[in-house]
Computed example of a mutant assay.
Amino acid sequence: MRYRAAIVGAGAIATAHAEALRKHADRISLVAVADLVPARAQAFAETWGIKSVYSDLSELLGLGNVDLVQLCTPPSTHAPLARQCLLAGVNVLMEKPPTLSLNEIDAISDISDRVATVFQHRFGTGAVRLRKLMESGELGRPLLATCHTLWFRDDAYYQVPWRGRWETEGGGPTMGHGIHQFDLLLSILGPWERVTAIAARRSRPVETEDVSMALVEFADGTVASVVNSVVSPRQTSTLRFDFEHATVEVEHLYGYSDQDWTITPAPAYEDLALAFPRTSTEKSSHADQLAAILDALDAGEPLPVTLPDTRLTMEFIAALYASAATGKPVRRGEIGPDHPFAARMNGTGITWQSYASTTPSNGR
Score class of each variant (00 low, 15 high):
128 V>S: 11
259 Q>C: 03
151 W>L: 15
215 L>H: 03
110 D>H: 03
76 S>C: 11
198 I>W: 06
12 A>N: 08
260 D>H: 11
171 G>Y: 00
231 V>F: 11
183 D>G: 11
248 V>A: 07
316 F>N: 14
150 L>W: 03
249 E>G: 02
88 A>W: 06
305 V>L: 15
138 E>S: 07
351 T>Y: 03
223 V>W: 12
35 D>V: 09
194 R>Y: 01
14 A>Q: 08
60 L>P: 12
64 G>C: 09
248 V>W: 09
135 E>F: 04
13 I>G: 03
58 S>E: 02
137 G>A: 06
163 R>W: 01
254 Y>H: 13
98 P>K: 01
27 R>Y: 02
91 N>Y: 06
39 A>E: 11
176 G>A: 13
30 L>W: 02
317 I>E: 04
344 R>I: 04
114 R>T: 02
44 F>A: 13
6 A>C: 13
267 P>T: 00
294 L>D: 00
207 E>D: 05
57 L>V: 15
225 S>E: 05
120 Q>C: 07
242 D>H: 04
31 V>S: 05
357 S>G: 10
16 A>Q: 12
325 A>L: 14
264 T>W: 07
188 I>F: 09
299 A>V: 09
22 R>C: 06
56 D>A: 06
48 W>E: 02
40 R>W: 04
86 L>A: 10
75 P>T: 01
101 S>A: 09
114 R>D: 07
250 V>C: 15
243 F>C: 13
317 I>V: 14
204 R>W: 03
50 I>S: 04
246 A>D: 01
119 F>W: 09
275 A>G: 01
62 G>Y: 02
64 G>P: 13
122 R>Q: 05
137 G>R: 14
103 N>A: 10
256 Y>H: 14
291 A>E: 07
82 A>E: 04
253 L>S: 04
140 G>D: 01
185 L>T: 06
213 M>F: 07
52 S>H: 12
119 F>H: 10
148 H>S: 07
138 E>P: 02
362 N>T: 01
70 Q>H: 01
139 L>D: 00
163 R>H: 06
338 D>Q: 07
227 V>G: 08
110 D>N: 06
307 L>R: 12
22 R>N: 02
32 A>P: 14
278 R>H: 12
228 N>Y: 00
